[in-house]
Structures are given as structure tokens and as C-alpha cells.
Design a protein around this nucleic acid. Structure first.
Lengths: 346, 346
DNA sequence: CCTCCTCGTGGAATCGATTACATGCACCTG
DNA sequence: CAGGTGCATGTAATCGATTCCACGAGGAGG
């Protein structure tokens, strides 16, 4: 592979001049520039990013550690992150934590070793020592979707409280009174927060949220299946189940179908995170949609602000309820409430 | 950030000794080793991978350029690739081409600039000059899923011919005679190959495949929708549609529903690539399943073989038909054929 | 007791870039 | 015409590791 020395030799100049041309430094003669460019072309020379990074102490790379690549929500997030980063001249290295704190630490460590310029994380837990040290060391970092309480890092996320309230109103309006939730890990903010929002909304309607109706999941399909089976085994099973993410909703669907029961006739189902497939499931699933691409873009802008010395800002965007058929017949259009979107086709 | 010099100073030895300890070179005294390790610990030292890469000319990183991150098939592939790579001590940098040759080239170039040790590609086109140059330059490379004909690079993929034949048998058995296909881009092997397999299988049953029944898609949902609308507008619409990937099947489902028609009563649907959601769509979709995780693992082993000087092998694994309800009532269990799997729940 | 190995260690070159500093030349100004 | 200014360029240090080579100490063998 040709190096800057080869180019210098080919153009009959010093490596310094070649470097100046490459970084378009003003003080290079037109003649020298032309010869260098010709040599670059002839040799098919491309600067070695590794060497450049070592010298300049910046890699123009962002690390993104997500909780689960198989979750379409995170996949969409990753896509928008990469897109925005590319627009700003950064590359993205994705690490998939698979909801495992140890894997998350592994990726953080690897990314740090690679000297990425900034880190985007949606933490799978309450903050490992490594994560805390990383923040303390001053690594530019931003939390996306989930965050770690008490850590001074900007957070980019969607606020689902209003949408959860809309959902409970929707369920209540359809006559459901026994409402249950499949929660995510309590160590994650989205895990506990969605339960809180749900509990608060229920209180507004004077409905209880007994412990038996709070199933402990881990954001993966299998746990949604397990929890739903437990719900169905109760003496008094819930009339409606709210899954805190889309994969657990998939698992719930599995469990319901395995019992030979039907959604929404036998049990209603709703999910946090909307995905294209929910339009075509049997039945179409009512879900809370996050402005995922916007979140990704905002997160990238926040880290890059931090990296380039500007003050980064936390961003919170609203999530919205998308009513479909999985909770029962949707209300007639004229009775529908503000912030409740009615969608049939994408 | 502490460097090897700081460690050397802390341990009272030279940087050479520190390096030897870190790479556990045999000739270091127990005493020196202990002091170095203590200093490493005290400083929280981590070797700078950038510097190490520059010197050793290897990054222990693999590049993976996939056609579309939003496609669950590629997402699953990416996951297994990362997993196997990690097991072998490599990191993976993913580039998402979004089915765009220009983006694909962008990622290949960036990855090459970063001096990744090897490249895994599922090409979105017939081979750009850059791609060809990269192969010619001797960069360890392996094609996954799709490949570029005439290029001497190992290919890891699934062979769907037998499964396509099984699918046509299944459709024929259900009485369907007018069969159409939503193809992928002709520039991709999976685009043209699946059409070929479909055409060959139809021939075995004496069925024609008129041009009007070959819709040109691009592996994305929108094109599946468009092509399906065109099919439905025909004077004699097909009785069954085979989508060459899962996203186009999603689009087809959209189009059918938008017309107020039903699958499979009004039109049958099948897809290449099975995904968990197909169990829960309305109706559950009959699909051809690839051994995706195995493909990812095999691909990684192939590039790593190449990187580490062993001869890499191409790998072809069989795909299998998974019958669900989207083509009509499945045959009674006793009439089902070899290689045809019947699945209801995952 | 001298020579030769082996072992542990440090010095210094090296990877491929960037960049501070020095140099030489042309041109402008008083 | 002397001196100053500014531009184009080259030399060399530097980033943080790895690794070749040299060197001294100590043990084995003749």
C-alpha cells in the first residue's frame, strides 16, 4: 500500500508538502499541488487513517453501544445515527450488548482502546464501574433512549408519559379494567419509567396495579412469552397487557396464540415502540411510537457538540400513541382524543 | 490518558520491557513483570490500539458491509458475524449500504482507510471499480449472501433452489397456477438467482412465467408495494406472489390490504427469508428460511482463514421451506414432503 | 580461569502521518 | 540598496506502540 513517502517521491517534493496538499493548507504552490495530486492519482494513494489518528489524536469515529441489534427500534436508531454521523464527517462503530452488562462493558472497553472520539450508549444496566470511570475520565458521551441516573451526561430520549396516559385512557374507554404490564429490567430507566408512567396513569382512573400484574421481563421476546403465560395462569388474568417494548410484545403474542386464545377478544395487547410489522400482525398492534430517527440525529449532534467543544444539550421528544386493533375496536373517529393518532397503513 | 511511557516510568523499567510484559514475551523476570503489572493497574493503563495497529499493521478488525440494516435478515447476519468475530478476537465495523452502490463504495473506502484486516460484503450491485480494485489489491474479502460473478472471492451463502422447488410444489398442490415473483435488482445474484430458480421450478410443472409476472423490485418494502399493485392491476392478476425478500413481502402485504383484499383467499403470498414476525402476521407467511447464524459464522471463519494465511473456503448451505398459511390451507401432515418443515410456533 | 551461552534488559529504529521551526528566495519599501 | 515581509518548501520531532540489536551478568563447560 502506497504511503505518503511514495507520493512525495513520485511528485518530487517532501512529505510535508504532500501533507499540506492533502489537508489543503494554503501555502502550497499551484505547481507543487498539481504534481502531488497527479502522484496521488497515479499511485491510488489513500492516507492511512490509523497513522493520522495517532498523530492528531482523533479518529473521527463515534462508538454506539446499543442494547440489542435484533430489536427493530435500535436498528432504526443505529441507522439514523450512522446517517447523521456520516453527514458530519464521522464514522460509527456499533457494539451490540444483547442486553448483557458484561458485553456492554466489553464493547465500551474495545471502543475506548480504539480511541473513538465520542460514545453513544443506551445502557443495559445501572452503570458499571467502567462506565462511570469513562464518564469521569471526560470521554465525550451521550445517553440515548435509556440513561443512568445521577451521572452527568446529556440524555437524548423520548418521553412516553403522555402517550402512556393516552393508552390507559384508550384501554379504559374500551372497558378494560384489569391492566397489566410486562416491564423491562428495573436497572434500566426505560424499564422502571414505563412502569411508573403506567401506574400513575392507572391511578388517574382509580385503577390499581397489583404486583401480580407487573411482570418482570428483560426486553427480549422469550421473557414476554414467559410473563404472559404467568399472567394467563392467574386466577384472575388481566384483560389487557402492555409490553414495555416490541420484542416482549412479540413474545406475548406467541404465548397467547400458544394457548389458543385471541387478541383482542380474550386479552388486549399494546406495546411500547412502534415498528412497521405491527401494521400486519394479527391483529395490528396498538403501540407507542417514538420519533426514532430524530432521536438518533439529536444524539449524534449532542456528542459531536461535546467533541468539538460546544456545550451539548439533552433532548426530550414526545412519543405518541398509535391506535390499531389489538385492544379492541378503536373508538369512532369523532371521539378520539388529542395526541392519539389513528393509522391503518404506513 | 496514560501511555506505555508512564507505565515504564512507574515500574522503573524501559518501555521495551513493558511491551514485553503486555505481549507476554517469555524473557521477562518475574520481578519486572510484577512491577509492570502493578503500574498498569495503578494507572488504569490500556494500550493504544491505534498506535499498536500502526506498528503491527493489523487492526484485528473486520469490516462488514451489508445491504440494508433495516432488513431483519441482515441484522441477524450482522449479529452472528459480530459474535463469531469476537470469539476469534476480532471487532466488527458495520457499514450499511441501504441498497445504494454509492453508499456501499463509501463504506468500503472508509473501512479500507481504517486498514481493517478483512472485509465481508453482500454486494448491492455487480461490482464497482473500487470493489474490483480492492479484490485485486489482495484485501482479504469474502462475499456473504450475494456475490459478484467472475470475481475470485470465497462466497458464503444459502442455496435456495431446492426450497424454491418445494415452494412451487406447495403452491401447485394448493391449486395455484398463475404464479408471479417480485424480484430483487438484476445486478445482485440473489436478485436474478431467485427468479431463475422460480422459473426452473415452474417449468417442471409446465407452468409459464410471463414477463408481466416478473416484477422488478429493489429488496425494499416500497418496491414490493408498487409491484404488487401492478400485479393486481393486470387483466389476469396472479393467484400467488413470491417476494424475493421479507421487506418486499411486507410491502406486498401493505398493497393487498390497501385494496381491501385478503391473503390467501384473494391472493397467496410467500417470501424468501424467514423472520420471527412472519409467525404473527395476518396471515402467518410461508417463507424460505436461511440458516442465517451459520452463514455469519462461516463467513467470519472464511475471512479470518484468509487473513491468517489459511486457504479460505466457499460455503453453501441449504435453505428450507417453512409452510404457514399465506398460500392457503397447508396440506395435511401425512401428505407433506421431504424438506418441507411445518412450523406454527417458534 | 577463560570462553561461550543464555537471559533479562535498555536503546533506538520504525510504522505513516502532522506540524513547529528553519531556510531561501522574491519582492516591497524607505 | 539595505532591510523587512511573506511565501513555498524542507528538516526533523512527535504520537504510542513493537521489535531488532547490543550489552552486561551469571552459569556451564573445557
Amino acid at each position: 500500500m502506497a504511503s505518503i513517502k511514495d507520493v512525495a517521491a513520485g511528485a518530487g517534493v517532501s512529505v510535508a508538502t504532500v501533507s499540506r496538499v492533502l489537508n489543503d493548507h494554503p501555502s502550497v504552490s499551484a505547481d507543487a499541488r498539481a504534481r502531488v495530486l497527479a502522484a496521488v492519482d497515479a499511485l491510488g494513494y489513500r492516507p492511512n487513517a490509523v497513522a493520522r489518528s495517532l498523530r492528531t489524536d482523533q479518529t473521527r469515529t463515534l462508538g454506539l453501544v446499543i442494547s440489542d441489534v435484533l430489536n427493530p427500534y435500535f436498528t432504526e436508531l443505529a441507522r439514523s445515527v450512522e446517517e447523521e454521523a456520516r453527514a458530519l464527517g464521522y464514522s460509527v462503530v456499533i457494539g451490540n450488548a444483547d442486553e448483557r452488562p458484561d458485553l456492554q462493558d466489553h464493547h465500551v472497553r474495545t471502543l475506548l482502546d480504539r480511541r473513538i472520539d465520542g460514545l453513544l450508549v443506551s445502557p443495559t444496566d445501572g452503570g458499571s464501574p467502567l462506565m462511570l470511570d469513562t464518564v469521569r475520565a471526560g470521554t465525550p458521551m451521550v445517553f440515548v433512549d435509556r440513561w443512568i441516573p445521577g451521572v452527568d451526561v446529556p440524555v437524548v430520549r423520548a418521553d412516553g408519559r403522555a402517550a402512556v396516559r393516552d393508552l390507559v385512557a384508550h384501554l379504559h374507554g374500551l372497558g378494560h379494567r384489569r391492566l397489566a404490564i410486562i416491564a423491562g429490567p428495573a436497572a434500566t430507566t426505560t424499564g422502571s419509567e414505563r412502569v411508573e408512567a403506567f401506574r400513575d396513569a392507572l391511578r388517574e382512573y382509580g385503577l390499581p396495579l397489583p404486583d401480580a400484574y407487573i411482570g418482570q421481563g428483560d426486553f427480549q421476546a422469550a421473557s414476554g412469552r414467559r410473563v404472559t403465560e404467568e399472567f394467563l395462569d392467574l386466577a384472575e388474568p388481566p384483560e389487557a397487557v402492555f409490553a414495555a417494548d416490541n420484542l416482549m410484545a412479540l413474545g406475548a403474542l406467541d404465548a397467547v396464540r400458544a394457548r389458543g386464545l385471541r387478541v383482542p377478544d380474550d386479552i388486549a395487547l399494546a406495546a411500547f415502540d412502534d415498528i412497521p410489522w405491527f401494521v400486519h400482525t394479527d391483529p395490528p398492534v396498538t403501540a407507542i411510537a417514538q420519533p426514532t430517527p430524530e432521536l438518533g440525529r439529536a444524539a449524534v449532534r449532542a456528542v459531536v457538540d461535546r467533541i468539538e467543544g460546544r456545550p451539548p444539550r439533552s433532548v426530550t421528544l414526545p412519543a405518541t400513541l398509535v391506535v390499531r386493533r389489538s385492544c379492541g375496536e378503536p373508538p369512532a373517529p369523532d371521539t378520539r382524543q388529542a395526541n392519539v393518532t389513528q393509522r391503518s397503513n404506513p
